[in-house]
Amino acid sequence: MLLIYTGNGKGKTCACIGQTVRALGQGMEVAFGQFMKRDGQAGEQKMLSHLLGSRFLAAGEGFLRRGEDRIPHRNAALKTLDWAREHLTTVDMLILDETLYALNAGILTREEFESLIAESRAQNRHLVLSGRHAPDWLIESADIVTELREIKHAWHTGLKAALGIEF
Rank of each mutant, 00 (worst) to 15 (best):
A15P: 00
A15Q: 04
A15I: 10
A15Y: 02
C16D: 13
I17C: 02
I17V: 15
G18P: 04
Q19V: 06
Q19L: 11
T20K: 07
R22N: 00
R22W: 01
A23D: 14
A23W: 05
A23F: 02
A23T: 03
L24E: 09
G25P: 01
G25W: 05
Q26Y: 04
Q26N: 04
G27E: 01
M28Y: 03
M28C: 02
M28F: 08
M28I: 09
E29Q: 14
V30M: 13
V30N: 13
A31L: 12
A31V: 07
F32L: 15
G33W: 05
Q34H: 01
Q34R: 14
Q34L: 03
Q34P: 01
Q34S: 02
M36N: 11
M36H: 02
K37F: 01
D39G: 04
D39S: 09
D39K: 05
D39Q: 12
G40A: 03
G40Q: 11
Q41P: 08
Q41H: 03
Q41L: 15
G43P: 10
E44K: 09
Q45M: 10
Q45W: 09
K46R: 14
K46P: 00
M47D: 11
M47N: 12
M47E: 07
L48A: 02
L48V: 08
S49W: 13
S49V: 03
L51T: 14
L51V: 04
L52I: 10
L52C: 06
L52D: 09
L52Y: 06
G53N: 15
S54H: 15
S54K: 15
S54V: 14
R55S: 15
R55P: 11
R55T: 08
F56Q: 08
F56K: 03
F56T: 13
F56R: 10
L57M: 13
L57Y: 09
L57T: 08
L57I: 10
A58G: 01
A58Q: 03
A58F: 01
A58P: 01
A58V: 04
A59P: 00
A59C: 06
A59L: 08
A59M: 12
G60E: 12
E61W: 12
E61V: 07
E61S: 04
G62I: 13
G62M: 06
G62Q: 01
G62C: 07
